[in-house]
């Protein structure tokens, strides 16, 4: 059974159809990529998956349970965590407290040790006591990831985690994602850094104009003429 099953999701904003019948799934222990040109509806789909946006039609299931109309915090309790493309840090708390709030919300018993382990694992040791709002984008993205991980999720949704990262940082991010998947976490990754996507993803879905136009392993998707067309336009 798939960890996440998104079935025929439609989202309409006024006269505009942002997502029109997208279906995709993500498995535990895999990094699933969701790519597509700007305005394809990727962030909207993310918002639907974690409950910030109600879909016009369609359903979302986590571990076989239909969660389409659950509030975001209830989905978090069922193991969904996410990061935001436009950073949503608790900017007046320190980095450590950002992660700590998340661990506390997840009712972990060993909050402190979880937080400290995550700080080391994600590589935030040097900035742990700085106020999150003062961080450069690269570290801020890492804080978002660490914060999401602190809730001990089953499914991690990452919305452009590599934007604003240097090449070295994004390489580190790649290996972090791989190792998380190897531990059994399901990762759904929206990303524009194609080097990263092609390197870490097990399976890729391509969203264009609100529809999934292709899916498959990275090498296959890269050769797909429909994908090239979606990105480069008709020749």
């Amino acid at each position: 059974m798939a960890l996440l099953y998104v079935d025929q999701i439609m989202v309409r904003f006024g006269g505009v159809m942002a997502v029109s019948g997208a279906t995709l799934l993500a498995k535990a222990g895999q990094v699933t990529g969701l790519i597509g040109p700007n305005g394809a509806g990727k962030t909207t789909l993310f918002n639907v998956i974690n409950g910030i946006q109600d879909p016009t039609a369609g359903s979302v299931s986590i571990d076989g349970e239909n969660v389409t109309h659950l509030a975001p915090h209830k989905r978090a309790q069922r193991g969904v965590a996410r990061t935001f493309q436009r950073l949503e840090l608790f900017s007046s708390l320190t980095v450590r407290d950002n992660i700590r709030v998340a661990a506390e919300l997840a009712m972990l018993t060993n909050v402190s040790s979880t937080v400290e382990k995550l700080i080391v694992r994600v590589g935030l040791t040097d900035v742990a006591d700085r106020t999150a709002g003062d961080l450069p984008t690269g570290s801020a993205r890492l804080v978002e990831i660490a914060r999401a991980l602190a809730t001990k999720p089953k499914l991690l949704l990452l919305d452009e985690p590599a934007s604003g990262l240097s090449d070295i940082e994004s390489e580190h991010l790649g290996s972090l994602l791989r190792s998380l998947a190897d531990e059994g976490l399901g990762v759904l990754l929206v990303e524009h850094d194609m080097d990263l996507v092609m390197r870490v993803c097990d399976h890729i879905f391509v969203l264009d104009l609100g529809e999934i136009i292709a899916d498959g392993p990275p090498a296959e998707v890269r050769q797909n003429p429909r994908v090239l067309e979606a990105y480069l336009g008709a020749s």
Binding site: A71, P72, F84, E88, L89, V101, A102, L105, T151
Partner: peptide
């Protein structure tokens, strides 16, 4: 305390707080 951190989290980003499991 834990509660105070939650308050600040609520102020700084309700969206993030909710997605981390906070009952706003």
């Amino acid at each position: 305390s834990r509660l105070g951190r939650r308050f600040i989290a609520l102020k700084d980003s309700p969206a993030a707080a909710a997605t981390l499991g906070m009952n706003l």
